Simulated assay, not measured.
Amino acid sequence: MTVYHLDLGDSQTEELEEVTHLTLAGEDHDIDAFVASDQGSDEPRRGGLLIVRKDERNEAAGRWVQAVEDLSTEQDVIIIAGDPASPEARRIHLTKAWAADSFHDDEDDDPEALTLAFADITIK
């Protein structure tokens, strides 16, 4: 199983517990297999995926979560598959993403998990 990190910019990342439930055009895909084999597409690929956060959280990730949970905004998101410092690590680019759903243990806390919907996905 691949280790995934949320890219927060400015060389900041937050390691994720897991990334699962990748769906494209209503079809489920294994995220590890998709990242390893994706050849790209000339057409936008709308879909979603679930990110589950660890207990150790970056302060910048809390601000990112607030921004992505604001349904009036969409933003590009990068999730790194593997070691963020490695030039071989694959980057999952989600275009115009937003939190379609979030799961909280406590309403006052940052969510434990987010379902991110996106307008397109590319792997670099």
Score class of each variant (00 low, 15 high):
108 D>Y: 08
31 I>M: 12
107 E>H: 13
2 T>Q: 11
60 A>C: 02
112 E>M: 09
101 D>H: 15
58 N>M: 00
108 D>A: 12
10 D>I: 08
49 L>K: 03
90 R>F: 03
96 K>M: 10
108 D>I: 08
81 A>D: 06
112 E>H: 06
17 E>Y: 00
84 P>W: 05
45 R>F: 04
15 E>F: 00
15 E>C: 02
83 D>Y: 00
4 Y>K: 09
98 W>A: 14
82 G>W: 01
9 G>E: 11
9 G>R: 12
109 D>A: 09
44 P>D: 14
75 Q>T: 10
114 L>G: 00
26 G>V: 15
65 V>S: 02
85 A>G: 06
106 D>C: 07
89 A>V: 05
59 E>I: 10
101 D>C: 07
77 V>M: 07
114 L>D: 05
15 E>Q: 09
116 L>V: 08
12 Q>Y: 10
25 A>E: 11
119 A>S: 15
101 D>N: 14
117 A>P: 03
47 G>W: 02
73 T>M: 14
4 Y>S: 07
35 V>W: 00
107 E>L: 08
49 L>W: 01
10 D>N: 09
104 H>V: 07
54 K>L: 06
98 W>Y: 15
107 E>S: 08
55 D>A: 08
20 T>P: 01
5 H>M: 05
12 Q>I: 09
23 T>A: 11
51 I>G: 00
63 R>A: 12
26 G>S: 11
51 I>K: 01
43 E>G: 05
105 D>R: 09
42 D>A: 13
124 K>S: 14
106 D>P: 01
103 F>Y: 14
7 D>N: 14
122 T>A: 14
